[in-house]
Design a protein around this nucleic acid. Structure first.
Lengths: 337, 337
DNA sequence: CATTGGCACTCAGTGCCACTGAGTGCCAGG
DNA sequence: CCTGGCACTCAGTGGCACTGAGTGCCAATG
């Protein structure tokens, strides 16, 4: 038996199953793909593939269906990267370039991704952790209350109220302002937090201490890391079959943003698209869904993750290409903005 | 025939159908409800109710099912307001009181509402339009760039960057600051916008004009009016039957926040809960879904709307009670905060 | 030794049929 | 106006045979 042909058969099975949504048999296979051999031969190959765990039969006397392991092999070794057409590229580009601010970029990305893939799209907001401090502003609202505004390189703005123990004059405030800015400006937020802690004098720095505490708190407050946009849930309606078993847990997961973040997981940046298939993921209930995700961010730093969630039975090459393309364009937009 | 009994029959049909999800027949009806008459009598009543359009038969030789018109009558005239138990009240109250800020209040409300009703909950963020200006802050970032911060009574904070044509000194700035605050503070945003426009001198007010323009723009920017939180979409999984026809358009609607806003529509405040049943709504595709909504806001001003979306076949009394209760408690929280 | 054609076997899906039972409409009698 | 009785309707169910796509195995072939 030729190893090559065995893989060709697997590929054919995956492709046919994805497009027809029905178990595929040996005869149909040789008709649709030019394998150059007879159905009987294909049957032998299929028997071997089944032994090795790449495909399975829903019931005797039915065609074969890929297993998670089969999809895995397909994704890892049989996928020829499908490039986007120039028309598609232009469409993506112009659609994203219309965005007016960060929120808009994220929202547009989600819509775009869900439309391109016809799956549920998930986009994480750019993380604070890798971004740098552009400016810190301190505003006196009343003699003992001030507003601390933290402006980051990603365009995110965080503001906090600070209640002071004592009063403070405008002069003291502008001194304080320049000191915190000198310490923090241009640093990553991790470095900035450390630098700010360092400049608080051990004694007698009550006002400064409370301001710094609030700023550091804002920097380390990862609530905004957990912000996520979801779109295209209507695509779930296409599941049709396997409703309660597949759609319900997925809908639940889509509301639990913490779960989603875990799902997107440790996606890498730099063009590499991570694919997690069925039970490979951490959630028992999402056994028949896959996640296709990648990191994105300016200058190839992975500030955040975006991707899609869909049935294991999906068009992996197309989906991966779409995810990668959107990630690239979003990264570029962030680079410019 | 007694008119009263006819209505009692309708009520019984609605109640049984809602709980069993199956067409209800005359025999089952007299067994489960003490109507004091025979099935035959009930059959006569049913025939009349059907003639009048309140109920219908899915097919001959099946039980009856309420029509939209039947639900309408039920909601308008047959609903005895179901009060929340004290335990439920306490649960609602403590759950909402744990909220730390406006976003948290909204998010908690959505979760609470979806869990109480087991439906999809929708909560609109408090509108800017009725809220008042608490404070305006102007911060000099560089000699010709300043940050305008608008703090509203609802706790919402909007900030905008202003690029100035010329430079401005700290003194001029603090003069400007006190003038805009004098004009706007305490006003509703509509009034504030007008007042701000009025204080710009017809000539020579370039700096002020650009600042005021930005502020007015922020006030009139109703993007934040359209913010909406949705929760409990997993409850859609209970639809089971009528999947493609009912769930798909609803999922689509849930993503189109503009559509949702229209759906929530002109809900009133002050304890009145609006119910829109099936085709009464503006969307053809949502023919088998109802909307139960009410306004909420501090001091009984309807700043925004909250409610649920679910199948026409729902427990209206319970749902209406839950919506009303949540709206009241949220209003109270906003009152205090 | 891989490939092939042939053959018997399996079994989900489909159409047909009869039966059941919940439900109805109508009518005559209280 | 209510009720009991009766004939009728029809969705749903289970049994049954048939069909067809698909399989596994084997002997023959290059």
């Amino acid at each position: 038996m030729q190893e090559d042909r065995k893989l060709a058969v697997l590929r054919a099975i995956v492709e046919d199953y994805v497009s027809t949504e029905e178990p595929v048999g040996s005869k149909a296979l040789v008709e649709r793909h030019r394998l150059g051999v007879s159905p009987a031969t294909v049957r032998n190959d299929m028997a071997v593939l089944e032994d090795e765990g790449y495909i399975t039969q829903p019931h005797t006397s039915a065609g074969r269906v890929p297993t998670d392991k089969g999809y895995r092999l397909f994704v890892d070794r049989l996928t020829t990267v499908k490039a986007m057409t120039t028309a598609e590229k232009r469409a993506i580009s112009t659609f994203l370039e219309g965005a007016v601010d960060l929120d808009d970029v994220v929202n547009r990305s989600v819509r775009l991704l869900s439309q391109l893939t016809r799956q549920v799209a998930v986009v994480q907001y750019p993380t604070l952790s890798r971004s740098t401090v552009r400016h810190i502003e301190l505003v006196l609202l009343s003699p003992n209350r001030l507003l601390a505004v933290l402006i980051l390189s990603t365009g995110r703005v965080e503001q906090r109220l600070v209640e002071l123990a004592g009063e403070i004059t405008e002069d003291e405030l502008s001194d304080l302002r320049s000191r915190v800015n000198r310490a923090a400006m241009g640093q990553t937020i991790a470095a900035a937090a450390q630098a700010l802690r360092d400049i608080v004098p051990p004694v007698d720095g009550d006002t400064m201490r409370s301001v710094v505490e609030v700023l550091v708190d804002a920097m380390e407050d990862h609530r905004s890391d957990e912000r996520i946009a979801v779109g295209g849930a209507a695509n779930l309606a296409r599941y049709g079959d396997s409703f309660d078993s597949a759609v319900r847990p997925l809908l639940e997961a889509l509301e639990e943003h913490v779960v989603l973040l875990k799902l997107l997981g440790e996606a890498q940046t730099g063009g590499a698209v991570t694919v997690r298939i069925g039970r490979e993921g951490p959630y028992e209930q999402l056994s028949s869904t896959s996640v296709v995700a990648t990191g994105y961010g300016p200058r190839d730093e992975a500030l955040a993750t975006l991707g899609i969630v869909g049935p294991t039975r999906m068009d992996y090459p197309g989906t991966m290409a779409a995810v990668r393309a959107v990630a690239r364009y979003v990264s570029r937009i962030l680079d410019e903005g």
